[in-house]
Simulated assay, not measured.
Amino acid sequence: MSAEQAGPLAGIRVIELGQYISGPYAAKLLADLGADVVKVESPGGDPMRRWEGRGTMSPQFAAYNRGKRAVVLDLKSERGLAELLRLAGDADVLIENFRPGVARRLGFGPEVLRERNPRLVSCAITGFGADGPYAARPAYDTVISAVGGMYSQVVPEHILRPLGPAFSDLLSGMQAAQAVLAALHARNATGHGEHIEVSMVGSLIDFLTEAASTYLETGQVAGPHSRPRRAQAYACRGSDGRAFVVHMSVPEKFWTGLLDVLEHPELAEDPRFASREARVANYDALDALLKAITARMPRQHWLDRLAAHDIPHGPLNTVAELFDDPQIASMGLVEEIDGHEGTPLRVPVPSTRFSRSGRPRIHAAPGLGEHDAELLGEASMAHEGSRA
């Protein structure tokens, strides 16, 4: 196998029983590193397959499930459970994101898995953890992002609605993948696997470590503007309406350089902005001034001047603009692959590069039960006629 086809996790088999985002994303990250991921779905399939009315291959499902193989098992049947346990017996990792207790109720709790395969690393992703007053509640990203404090950090006071990507799903998926890698490393020393529990709400709190630690230490409550104010980060629009950002951080040279860019040296003498502490205290006033000044010329004028003065800055790209950005385009972060049913598909690829192990070739997300014949016994394929 060539280096480009292998990846650092070549030879690792992952069984994924995931739906929607957190579990599938964790397994996708491992597949991107070369793991052989087998996605196990019910006869109806992962519900995300049918988003946007595109049959069984929505763009969202394709994004979180590329690079995997897929089988269909009815885990409520003896035959389906037996086949799952057989697959787990030969695997290195099993990931699921059911509600607490579901895996045990269906017959593949961590104790059963450990008995079958002492080297197996099992990982359960839940919304609120295994116990506690919220544990049994349905846990979707919006709920967790609200309870876990994320929305208080990104939703402006005048906008009362959920926004942004699936923060808690993605962060818990990343934390689960990281934990799995750590457990596989520990297994090299002990010869034994272990069970991992990752909660979506806990992953958010861990991600918000600065805001959480600051509150616990000082009582200060961070909000959407706390970090930009402290970091001296600003967003402006040029006269053409196109947005960009400037991040001055701590070094005074960035402030004095910005004054040269703006051709407003007199601001250095303004007591409201004479020091970093003053600029933090008068953030709103400086923000308004910067917006008024930069609105006089097009964005590219400012980008060129900021680059010439070595000021941290960048265009505020939309997703539509992102892949045309010259830096992004130069990094080889998009590849064309054969999509579902052979249709060419452009996809983002991992940015991490390994000097020796390479990375595997990117494959499109699998069809529902696409690898049944390859991975399952004939008796376990009796569900074939029941698929949607």
Score class of each variant (00 low, 15 high):
V102M: 10
G164Q: 12
Y283G: 01
M381I: 04
A135S: 15
R104M: 06
R50L: 09
Y234L: 07
F61P: 00
S172N: 11
L303H: 11
V198G: 03
L208V: 09
S275M: 05
R50F: 11
E111D: 15
A35K: 11
G7F: 03
Y64S: 04
R237S: 07
S2R: 09
P344W: 08
P59I: 13
N97L: 04
V198I: 15
E157V: 08
Q232K: 10
R299F: 08
F98A: 13
E157S: 11
M331D: 06
V221H: 09
D338R: 11
D284V: 07
A124F: 02
D325G: 03
G23P: 00
D32Y: 00
S203T: 12
A166C: 07
L120G: 00
V102N: 05
H247C: 12
R187T: 12
V246E: 00
Q232L: 15
T343W: 06
R230Y: 11
P100G: 12
R356F: 03
Y215T: 08
H195C: 02
Y25L: 10
P265M: 06
A10Q: 13
V14I: 06
E266W: 01
G238R: 10
P360R: 03
G202M: 11
G107I: 02
T352N: 01
V143G: 04
L9V: 02
L216W: 14
D90T: 15
G148P: 08
D287H: 09
H363I: 02
R242D: 11
A186M: 15
L376A: 00
E52S: 12
D46R: 10
Y215I: 10
V72Q: 02
H264W: 03
G129F: 01
L303A: 02
G164F: 05
A295C: 04
E16Q: 13
Y25H: 14
G127V: 10
E378Y: 00
V349M: 08
S213G: 11
Q327C: 06
A35Y: 08
R86P: 00
P312E: 09
P348I: 05
F128L: 09
I362D: 00
L376E: 03
G109E: 02
D169A: 05
Y215G: 12
G342N: 05
T352L: 08
A233S: 13
D92W: 05
G45W: 09
V250W: 05
P326L: 08
G202L: 03
